[in-house]
Amino acid sequence: MNEFKGVISRRFKLLISVVVLFVLIVLAFFLYGYETESNLGDFVLGMQTGIFIGTLALICVKINRLRLALRDEAALKKLYIEEKDERKQLIEQSTNSLSLQIILLLTSLAAVVAGFFSVTVSITLFAVLAVLSLVMVIAKWYYNRKY
């Protein structure tokens, strides 16, 4: 359990660093980012800020969970069981695998359909598809070597 506590402690510090970085980025948006003239610029900026703040909130929830686990042995054991539970891991693996296959299929379909309306969008979707496929191939190669 001490080894796991070390892992949680490192994860806690990493997330704190991420929060500090995010806060600095959001502050930079507020201080320098709003000097836009078009409505589209405002929209994009608002969306970016929203994504950052939303992610920040989720990280804060995670940090609080880790903080509680580091203080309380029972909470640490509960977190350990939740993370190492083999059924949960299987569900996670199955979900990720199926989701990736569906995403690849839908992106391929979208790239073809978008080709009838906009070449730029179609090429972008094909690029996304290529990157996703490349990541999948690399991951498969890595796990083939690992196990």
Binding site: K77, Y80, I81, E82, K84, D85, E86, R87, K88
Partner: peptide, 11 residues
């Protein structure tokens, strides 16, 4: 039992 064997109750 779940706590003793290190899994969740749902398992």
């Amino acid at each position: 039992l779940a706590n003793a064997v290190g899994v969740t109750r749902q398992t």
